Simulated assay, not measured.
Amino acid sequence: MNAQTSFDIPVLLREDRAGGIAVLTLNRPTSRNALSEALIEALTEAFDRIGSDPSVRAVILAGSGPAFSAGHDMKEMTARRSDPDRGRAYFADLLERCSAMMQRVVRLPQPVIAAVEGVASAAGCQLVASADLAVAGADARFATPGVHIGLFCSTPMVALSRNVAPKHAMEMLLLGEMVPAEDAARIGLVNRVVPAGEALAEALRLAAVIASKSPHTVKIGKAAFYEQAEMSLADAYAHASQVMTENMLARDAEEGIGAFIEKRDPAWTGS
């Protein structure tokens, strides 16, 4: 990726795997993959490129080193307290850019899978919650610990509260305690837990299954899922019916249904 550290080391690595799977690895291991300005920019650029690349069918987010991501880079942020406005403008801009990056995950045409080993805290937990699916190694832990340092995890709260039940979200936000992988799966923050060190392998397996489906169908289905979630029940059904009608007229739906009836494998066209 373009964004690099002062030592010319890329803060985000991209590896394109067979079958249209892109693996994005947060690459600031000595900072526990904290979301610095450079890393937020690199993720934003990567999502924009991937979103317009039809060859990519699924995306995996992973972290290098012992942690997935420790959240925002507090040292980088604290350095701006010496600004004339005590950092107000900088903090507002940084959080706006980070929020826009998180929304890109949701709006990306391709499904995004978080492969979590180690700790995912604060904005790192937010990134996991923003992903469409999440796999955790057995030793992974999750937290929104801002309350410990007088900084409520308000922006992580947005993604978290859209993943888990309100009382589970409030417990994480108010107590700031580490949530083990098994508990994260129980409350719906992650889909499944695998032996430590195997999160990426399982994420790749899930991505391969997704990549075998019609990319057109997956794209419209992902968009419809998030759109209807913000609607009333009646509006959601009306919207979903409209989407499904258009889906039925798509060439891939015609091919897929025909293949099902004829008991053969479908040949997707992506339209």
Score class of each variant (00 low, 15 high):
R57S: 09
A58N: 07
V59M: 04
V59S: 06
V59A: 06
L61H: 07
G63I: 11
G65F: 02
P66A: 12
A67G: 05
A67C: 13
F68K: 09
A70Q: 12
G71Y: 06
G71L: 05
M77H: 09
A79G: 08
A79L: 13
R80T: 15
R81Y: 08
R81W: 10
R81G: 14
R81S: 13
S82T: 15
D85H: 03
D85V: 08
D85T: 10
G87S: 06
Y90N: 04
A92T: 14
L94V: 13
L94R: 13
L95H: 11
R97P: 08
R97E: 11
S99L: 05
A100H: 11
A100V: 14
M101G: 07
M101S: 05
M102S: 09
V105E: 01
V105K: 00
L108K: 08
P109E: 03
I113Y: 00
A114H: 00
E117N: 15
V119N: 12
V119E: 12
A120M: 03
S121Y: 02
S121N: 03
A122Q: 02
A123F: 13
G124I: 03
Q126G: 10
V128E: 00
D132S: 06
D132V: 06
D132F: 04
D132P: 09
L133C: 06
A134V: 12
A134W: 07
V135Y: 04
V135S: 01
G137H: 05
A138F: 07
A138C: 05
A140N: 06
F142P: 05
T144R: 00
G146S: 07
V147W: 01
G150H: 06
G150F: 03
T155A: 02
M157V: 00
M157E: 15
L160F: 01
N163I: 04
N163A: 11
V164I: 11
P166D: 02
P166L: 00
H168S: 14
H168I: 01
A169V: 04
A169L: 07
M170T: 13
E171V: 08
M172V: 04
M172D: 09
L175A: 13
E177R: 14
E177I: 03
V179F: 03
A181E: 10
A181Q: 08
E182I: 04
E182F: 02
A184D: 05
R186N: 01
R186C: 00
L189C: 01
L189D: 03
V190I: 10
V194D: 08
V194W: 01
E198D: 14
A199D: 06
L200E: 15
A201R: 15
E202T: 10
A203Q: 08
